[in-house]
């Protein structure tokens, strides 16, 4: 399949899923929306914010996964696996539940600060020459530690109802999100995405090795900073409004890599499109489940991504054994 055909298929699928998401109700299932006032309100006030946020978060997570995998030359790198999403969630929780974000404007900023701190902690722990296993172990440690701190913060929050929000922050959801959440998250997320796309050519060169990349004029430190800032802005802002949704950034780039000639730079745009589609599809799926408390989107992505992650680990072990 050619690259352009891949982009066309992904774009058409995404457009179809956007339409399907707008036509899918929590109890009504899939139906064509009518023109009555109630249905129009449901469409604009419930389904549109959900659709836009799923679109944004899916794009951001898959794109950052693709960039991190290219930058670290590590097939297991992903904002969720490395603990960046968890530190963003922890920081957002502290801002929201302890009154630092009364206007709501500070919430994405808190998420971005948390994501930056998570990345910095990872870099400080593993150093610059760490192998795949070391990075994953450090990420797992940051992940569990910040998830535990998030649960602790919610337990200690002045509002006793905060404890009930643990599932949202650890498993993510677009339920009851409004357009205001989208307006808050979109500007930093779009800026972050622009930064991530800006390093695509450097990622291609980096795949030849750091020394070759340097000899070809790539300023490695600058690329790392730009990519790091892009991941922090995009992931931090999206986690602040949707909670932690794992494995999207891990699964999507892997599925698409064979269609992009294994070039990290060419992987970015298809990953962004497919990430958005996957997120929309999972959000549509949770809305089609029987009435009752809504299943968190992150549960479905973890059900898909967990076995995939284990398969990938096994695949890498076999590949290492062959070498």
């Amino acid at each position: 399949m050619t690259y352009n055909r891949l982009l066309l298929i992904l774009s058409v699928s995404l457009a179809f899923l956007i339409g399907l998401s707008l036509c899918t109700g929590r109890v009504t299932g899939v139906s064509w929306p009518g023109w009555d006032l109630e249905t129009q309100l449901i469409l604009w006030e419930i389904r549109l914010p959900r659709t836009l946020l799923a679109l944004l978060c899916g794009t951001v997570l898959a794109l950052s996964g693709a960039v991190l995998q290219g930058l670290l030359r590590n097939p297991l790198a992903d904002a969720g696996v490395l603990g960046v999403s968890s530190t963003a969630a922890l920081s957002s929780v502290c801002a929201i539940y302890f009154g630092f974000s009364a206007s709501g404007l500070f919430t994405p900023v808190a998420g971005i600060i948390g994501a930056m701190l998570g990345l910095l902690a990872l870099v400080m722990i593993v150093g610059s020459e760490a192998g795949i296993v070391m990075i994953i172990l450090a990420g797992a440690a940051i992940n569990s530690f910040s998830s535990a701190l998030t649960a602790l913060a919610l337990n200690m929050a002045p509002n006793p109802f905060a404890v009930q929000d643990i599932l949202f922050w650890l498993m993510g959801s677009f339920e009851h999100r409004t357009l205001q959440h989208f307006y808050l998250a979109a500007p930093p997320a779009l800026l972050g995405m622009a930064l991530l796309f800006s390093v695509s050519r450097s990622l291609d060169v980096l795949s030849l090795g750091e020394n070759t990349a340097r000899s070809m004029g790539v300023r490695l430190q600058k690329v790392q900073w730009v990519a790091g800032l892009g991941v922090a802005l995009a992931v931090g802002a999206s986690v602040a409004v949707s909670g932690v949704i794992g494995f999207v950034g891990l699964v999507v780039p892997h599925m698409l890599r064979p269609f992009t000639e294994w070039r990290p730079g060419r992987l970015l745009l298809p990953s962004a499109l497919a990430g958005a589609s996957l997120m929309l599809l999972t959000d549509i799926a949770v809305r089609c489940l029987p009435p009752g408390p809504e299943l968190r989107v992150g549960v479905i992505t973890a059900l898909l991504g967990g076995p995939f992650f284990l398969w990938l680990l096994r695949h890498l072990r076999k590949a290492e054994a062959l070498v």
Binding site: L41, Y97, G99, P158, N159, P160, Q164, H176
Partner: peptide, 15 residues
């Protein structure tokens, strides 16, 4: 309560 929670905030949904 002095602080927010998603559980109590959703009654503020603009819809």
């Amino acid at each position: 309560y002095d602080s927010e929670a998603l559980a109590t905030n959703w009654v503020e949904h603009p819809l």
